[in-house]
Simulated assay, not measured.
Amino acid sequence: MKQIASGKRGRVYDLGDGQIAKYYVPDAPDTALEREVLAARLAHDHGVPTPKVLSVDRDIAQGRVVFEYVSGVAVSWYVLKRPWRLFWASREMARCLANLHTIPDTQTPNLKTEMCKEIDSLSCLTSDTKKEILDQINQFSGPERLCHFDYHSSNVMVSDGACVVIDWGAARSGPPLADLTQTCVINRVDSFPDGTGALMRLVIRALRWLHIELLIAFYSHYSQDHSYASVRRGIRAWQRPIAAARLADDIAYERTALLRLVNSRTSSL
C-alpha cells in the first residue's frame, strides 16, 4: 500500500484495483470523516466531477474512507508546467464551483456557525475585533448551499482533460460567496514550493493573481445568482471574516498575511 498524498486531516494510500483510501490522522476533528463522506456523496449525486465514495470503515482508529481512484495532476502543477492553459483551468474551476453552489445543503455543518466558533477561539485578536467580525458574520444572509471551503488549485485535479474536485474535509453549508472568498484568501496567502528562486516566485505570484481574476470573472458568468459586480461586493464583505476564521488553522506561513487582511478596511483581494 503506497502513500500518495497527505494533508492536515489524513493520509491517502493507493490500494490498487482503482481504489484509494484516506486514513484520518489522530488529531483530525471527530466529525472529519462524516463531514467528508456527506459532502462527497452529495456532490457526486448532483453531478459534480469528484471521486465516488466506495466504502466507509468507522471501526478502525480514526476511520477510513475508500474512494474510486482518479488519475491526474493537481491544477497547480498542471498550470505551472503549461502556463498557456491557465485560461482553460480557471474557466473549468469556476464552472465546477458555480455548479457546486447550486446544490442545496442541510447536511454538512453550518458555515457561519463554524466560523464564529473558530474566530471566538482566537487569542491573536482583541475582544473588540472579534465582536466586530462576529457581528458582521451574523448580518450575512443567503441560501444554504454546499460549499467546499478548501477549493484551490491543489484540490482540483486535471484528469482526462477535465477538472475533478477532491478533498471535502472542510465542506460546509452556507453562502456561496463565502466559499469563493475562501478560495481567494487561500490563493493570496499560499506559500511557495521549497527551493523556489526569486524569479520563479514572481512568475508564480503573477499566475496566481491572474488565476483569481479569471476565476472571479468566469464564476460570475456561470453563476445563476450573482453578477460580476455582486461577486466583487461579496468578496469585499467576506474578506475580513474569512481571513479571521482561517487564523484558527494556525498555519505559520499564513499568519502575517491573514492578520494584514483582518486589519485592512478595504479589499486586498
Results as ranks from 00 to 15, higher is better:
T183H: 13
A94T: 14
A5E: 00
V65P: 00
F218Y: 03
A252V: 07
I235M: 14
D250K: 15
Q62M: 02
S141P: 01
I20Y: 10
E34S: 14
A28T: 04
L38R: 10
D249F: 13
M93V: 13
T266Q: 08
H211V: 01
L80V: 05
V158R: 10
I242A: 05
L215F: 02
Y78N: 15
S141W: 00
R255V: 15
H46A: 01
C116Y: 12
S6A: 13
I251Y: 10
R246P: 08
P143C: 09
S141K: 03
L80H: 07
V164Y: 02
S127C: 05
T129K: 04
R236M: 06
V48E: 02
C96G: 08
Q139G: 09
V12I: 05
G174A: 05
S230T: 07
T50V: 14
R145F: 12
K131H: 15
C124N: 01
I242R: 00
M1L: 05
R205V: 02
L202E: 07
P51W: 03
S153P: 00
G234I: 12
L42C: 05
V25N: 07
Q239S: 04
V73G: 03
D135K: 02
M157R: 11
V48N: 10
A162I: 03
W168A: 02
M200G: 15
A32D: 07
E144N: 12
G63K: 02
V165S: 10
N138Q: 09
L207G: 08
L15P: 06
P51D: 02
D179Y: 04
P143M: 11
N263P: 13
L86R: 14
Q107C: 12
R233Y: 08
L54G: 12
W238M: 05
P109W: 07
N138M: 15
K2R: 12
W84E: 11
A170H: 05
L269D: 04
V53H: 10
C163F: 12
G72Q: 00
S223W: 11
I133N: 00
W209E: 09
R9H: 12
R201L: 03
K130T: 05
Q182I: 01
S227F: 10
S121D: 09
N263C: 01
S159Y: 00
K117Y: 14
T256A: 14
H152N: 14
Y13Q: 05
W88D: 12
A245T: 11
E132G: 07
G7C: 14
Q239Y: 06
R188D: 09
V37L: 14
R9T: 13
L259G: 03
I103C: 09
V75P: 03
H44R: 07
V156W: 00
D167Y: 06
R233C: 04
I103E: 01
G195L: 02
R265V: 14
S123I: 12
G18K: 04
I242Y: 13
G142W: 13
D167I: 15
D150K: 01
L199M: 04
R260G: 07
A162P: 00
H44L: 06
S227I: 03
K81H: 11
V75C: 04
N99R: 13
K130W: 12
I251C: 09
H44I: 06
